[in-house]
Amino acid sequence: MQGLYAVFKKELQDHLSSYRFVILFALIAMVSFITSYMAAVHMRGNLEGLASTKFPFLMLFSTPGAMFSMVQFVAFFGPLIGLILGFDAINRERTQGTLIKVLSQPIYRDAVINGKFLAGVMTIAVMLVAIVLVISGFGLAFVGVVPGIEEMWRLFIFLIISIFYISFWLGLSILFSILFKSIATSSLASVALWIFLSFFISLGAEVVANTVAPIDRKNEVQPEVVLENARIKEMVSLSSPMVLYSDATATIIDPMRKTTRSIILVGPMEELLSARFQNPLSLGQSIVIVFPHIIALIAITLICFAISYLVFMLQEIRT
């Protein structure tokens, strides 16, 4: 444990005092400020005259003001935090010649990788908690909304999911820094994978869906085909951590959302029924809806780290 703690402490110090952390933090804090400010302005306009709204506090995070909401922002650019914190974790030490020196001290080999990963997770957690607190304070002051206990729980779960989501990208970039000896290669590889999984997967999903279940626009559109098409599209795009994360957090942060699906087929009577019961879901029910998403997100994070761990433990280290 002594080795793990020493590595953890040193890495955390490095992270918190590095320029890249400061720049990243400044950037993210600024953008979240702006998005929540926009959301607040938007809300103030919309809420005027309403007697009581449900969960106004959470709207600070989920309302897209000018461009995107805070939640969407984390989904898009959160991975960048993970990647930047981890892309040179191991191979920089290798090129510096410090890895072999650290490993020849009386520590277990896994202390190095565990310490680095935990320090990264800690940094991510500090960053996210700080931002959420700042936005909350901002909301209190600017809009005058006070969070209820359920809203706080929802925010807390949102934070946990976000930490896992960004940690997935941290784990991935650490894996690349173990696999690739050159820092340039590992950083490019992780950014490439991020761009592919986050931005191009939806294109791919469309192609796959239209190939498997093409919607014939000339003839009468059959609802079964449309549904099948949507289902395939969803399935493929769920292989993107970003989609997993957005679906999960959107439902957690917005109690009015009752499904992650984009197309729902309802009969006229059903519609009438659901229109009459426009009540928000309880927290438990929201969690149940996105439970698979949350579990999958945690699983890919752990699997990604486990692979890095194994590769690192079995690798021949000479420098």
Partner: peptide, 11 residues
């Protein structure tokens, strides 16, 4: 055992 590698590196 103390090991001083060839080209020892530092932070």
């Amino acid at each position: 055992v103390g090991y001083l590698p060839e080209n020892v590196g530092f932070y």
